[in-house]
Amino acid sequence: MPKVVVDVMPKPEILDPQGKAVLGALPRLGFDGVVDVRQGKRFELEVAGEVTDEVLARVREMAGTLLSNPVIEDFTVHVDAGDPA
């Protein structure tokens, strides 16, 4: 079933303490070479019926209303058609 995916990320200018914690842990585990980590959220929405432009518009509305806080976060919406058979 096709899914609509909403990715939410902290805005670039907003401090991301969780990302910083992950960044700090990586070298301790021997993973070198990572210079920054930002942590976000991914929402996978299964929708009834076809993913029309109207559905995508509604998802963007959901993303701006509930799934993200526009004061501190940005979001992107895309359709995940699933693994090709």
Partner: peptide
């Protein structure tokens, strides 16, 4: 109210 509250900077 404007603005937002995020995780403490020292975590």
């Amino acid at each position: 109210l404007p603005g937002a509250l995020i995780r403490n900077d020292h975590r």
